[in-house]
Design a protein around this nucleic acid. Structure first.
Lengths: 337, 337
DNA sequence: CTTCATCTTGGGAACATTCCCACAAAATGG
DNA sequence: CCATTTTGTGGGAATGTTCCCAAGATGAAG
C-alpha cells in the first residue's frame, strides 16, 4: 500500500520533460509535439495517473460540481427528481453532491456550509417545512453562486424556480370528486409554511367555490407531513357528526395512509369515502383500491432545474432572475374515487 | 455579484496579523491569544468567510469525503442503504458523493475515475450486473484507498463486505411455500453474474432437496432484472402443461410485477399460485394481496458498510481484509402465500 | 546570410491553506 | 537579576495543477 499519488511532476521527471509540457499533453493543448504527447499519455496510463481535481479546481475556481439539498429521501419524489438532475448534470460534465436536510432548518443550514466549503459551482434546493429564514441561501447570491429552487421554493428570493401548477392540480382533483357526486370533501393539507400547501389549499377552495359548495373550516386539517399522525386526523374526520364523503390529501403517502385507516375501520373506498392524492408515487398504482392522484413530471422537474442551473453557471441565460418554470400536472383517475 | 472569495489573507491584512495566526485562530489552535482569536472569529463571521476545503484537502491529502457507487436508484433498496450510510458518514464528519452506474459496466468505470479525481478517502460499492472485470476497483487498492462492498460484492477482492444471508433467506422462503403445501415452485432468478442471485438460487434448491422435491430446471428462469420482461416469463410459466403452484422471485419488484400479471389473467393469489418476494420493499405491504417476502435490514447494511469504511480510513481495524458482515434476514408472511 | 514567424518547451507565479521553524516578549524561578 | 520556560506571532515551504511569458530551435522568405 504505497501512499504517494502519481503527479505530473513524477511523469515529467521520468520523461525528462517539464511539468508544463506534461500538463499540456494531458489536457490536449495543441502546441505539443505529437510524439511527446503520445509518450506522456502512455506513461500516464501505465502509472494509473489520475488528475487531482482539488488542485485544478483551486486554480480554475471551478469544481464542476453542483450541490443538491433536499428535505428527505423517503418518498419517491426526491430520489426521482435527483435522478433527472443527475442525468442532465453528468451530461454537462458536472458531478453532484447530495445532502438531506431531514426536514430540519438547522441541518439545512449546515448543508449549505458544506456546499460553500466544497466550492460547488451552483446549488439546487428544495427547502424544509421549517425554513422561514433564508439568510443561509442568500450568501450564495452574494457570492455569485447560482441557485435554483424546485418543488419547495422561496418566494422572497429572485432566482429561477421550477414548480408544478399545484393550484390547478388541486382544483382538478377536487372538481373531479365533486363531479363524482361528493359534497363534503375534507382536505388533509400540508404545513402552511410551504408554498405548495398553500396553493393546493387554494385549488381546493376554488373548486368548492366554483361548484357552490360551502367551505367548511372543520374539514381542512393542515399538518406537518409526518404520516404517523394521519391516523388521528382520519379517525377524527370519520367520527364527526357529519363526516366527509371524500378526502383530498396533500400528497400520496398521506392518501395511502388514509386509505389504510379507512379500511381498518371496516369502511369502503370509494363507496363510503373517496380518496384522492397528489404526486402519483409508485405505490399509488399498487394499493387496493388503486389511488386517484395528480401526477407530476418529477424527473422532468429535476432535469429542468439542473439545466437552468447549468445555464446560469455558464452565463447562458440573460433574465434568469425572473424565470419560473411551471410544469403541468395530470389527473390520474383510478379506483379510489 | 462580487467574485473574489474572502480568504484568510484578507482577514490577516485587515486585522494586521499574519495568515498563520488567522489560520490558527480559525482552526482552534491553542497557542493563540484569546482576544486575537475572538477578533478573528468575529471578523470572519461578518465577512461570510468560508474555509476553502479544496486548499485544505490539497495539503492534508484528506477530503473527508466518501464515494458511493450504486447500480440504480429506482427500487427503494439503494436509496435506503444510502440513507443509512450517509447517517453514519455525516456523524463521523464525512461528506458523500453518490454515483449511479445505471447497471452498466462502462458507467461504473467512469464513476470510479470521478471518485479518484476527486480524491475521495474511501468508497462504498455495489457492482452492476454486468461487472466481471474489477481492474477499475483494484486501482483503489493499489493506491491505498479503502473500499467496502455491500449487497453486490466482488469475491475476488480481499476487502470488507456487507451482505445478508441470501442463502438462508431464500431457503426459508421456499421452505415456507412447501409447508403451505406447494409442490411445484418456480424461481424467477437474477443474473448468474451476481453472487446474490447464485446464493438465493442455492437456497431455493436446498429447500427443495431437504423436502425431497425434485429439482425441475424448467422452473428456474434467470433474467436480467429488467421488470418489463417478467410478464413474458410468468405467462410462459402459466402456459406450461404442468404449471407451477408457487413462484419465488429474486426480489420484490419482480414478485409485484408477477402478481399483477397473474391477476390480469384472472387467476388468484395465493389460491391458484402463491408468490414470495425478497427485500420487503415499501410497496410489498400495500399491494393486494400483500406480499410475503424476506426482509433485509437495508438501512443497517448501509450503516454497517459506512462504519467499516470509516474505520478502515482511520486505520482502526486490524484484519479488515477478511471482514465479511453477514446480516440476518427475516421472513415476513403476508397474504400472497 | 539575415530576419522573422512557427513550433515546442521550460520557468515560475498563482490558487488558499497548513504546518514547521524561528523568534521576540513576557513570565517564572532560583 | 539573570537564566529558562512559556506564550504568541510571523515567515516560508509545500500541496498539484494551470497558465502566462520567455526562449531556443527550426525553417522559410527576402
Amino acid at each position: 500500500m504505497k501512499r504517494h499519488q502519481v503527479t505530473i511532476i513524477d511523469i515529467a521527471r521520468e520523461l525528462n520533460l517539464s511539468k508544463s509540457t506534461v500538463s499540456r499533453a494531458l489536457t490536449g493543448h495543441p502546441s505539443v509535439n505529437a510524439a511527446t504527447r503520445q509518450a506522456v499519455l502512455e506513461f500516464a496510463e501505465k502509472m494509473d495517473y489520475q488528475r487531482n481535481m482539488l488542485a485544478i479546481s483551486l486554480i480554475t475556481k471551478k469544481t464542476n460540481t453542483i450541490g443538491i439539498i433536499v428535505p428527505e429521501f423517503h418518498s419517491s419524489y426526491f430520489p426521482k427528481a435527483i435522478i433527472g438532475a443527475q442525468e442532465v448534470a453528468s451530461k454537462a460534465g458536472y458531478n453532484t453532491v447530495i445532502c438531506q436536510s431531514n426536514e430540519t432548518y438547522e441541518t439545512e443550514v449546515a448543508n449549505t456550509k458544506v456546499m460553500l466549503a466544497n466550492q460547488v459551482d451552483g446549488i439546487l434546493v428544495s427547502i424544509t417545512k421549517e425554513t422561514r429564514n433564508f439568510d443561509h441561501l442568500k450568501i450564495f447570491q452574494r457570492k455569485g453562486i447560482p441557485i435554483v429552487f424546485f418543488n419547495r421554493v422561496c418566494d422572497e428570493m429572485d432566482v429561477p424556480k421550477v414548480i408544478v401548477d399545484d393550484y390547478d392540480g388541486a382544483f382538478r382533483a377536487v372538481n373531479h370528486l365533486i363531479e363524482r357526486g361528493r359534497k363534503r370533501i375534507a382536505h388533509l393539507a400540508g404545513p402552511s409554511s410551504l408554498k405548495i400547501s398553500e396553493k393546493r389549499l387554494n385549488g381546493y377552495t376554488a373548486a368548492l367555490r366554483k361548484n357552490n359548495i360551502e367551505f367548511d373550516e372543520e374539514l381542512v386539517i393542515p399538518y406537518d407531513l409526518n404520516v404517523d399522525k394521519v391516523k388521528i386526523y382520519v379517525n377524527h374526520l370519520l367520527n364527526m357528526d357529519n363526516p366527509p364523503d371524500a378526502i383530498f390529501a396533500v400528497n400520496d403517502p398521506t392518501a395511502i395512509e388514509a386509505i389504510q385507516v379507512i379500511k381498518k375501520r371496516g369502511l369502503h373506498v370509494p363507496e363510503d369515502i373517496a380518496v384522492v392524492g397528489f404526486s402519483n408515487d409508485f405505490a399509488s398504482g399498487l394499493i387496493e383500491p388503486s389511488l386517484t392522484t395528480v401526477s407530476q413530471p418529477v424527473k422532468e422537474i429535476g432535469q429542468t432545474a439542473a439545466q437552468l442551473l447549468i445555464d446560469q453557471i455558464n452565463r447562458d441565460v440573460a433574465d434568469w432572475k425572473t424565470i419560473i418554470r411551471v410544469l403541468k400536472t395530470e389527473l390520474i383517475i383510478r379506483k379510489s374515487s
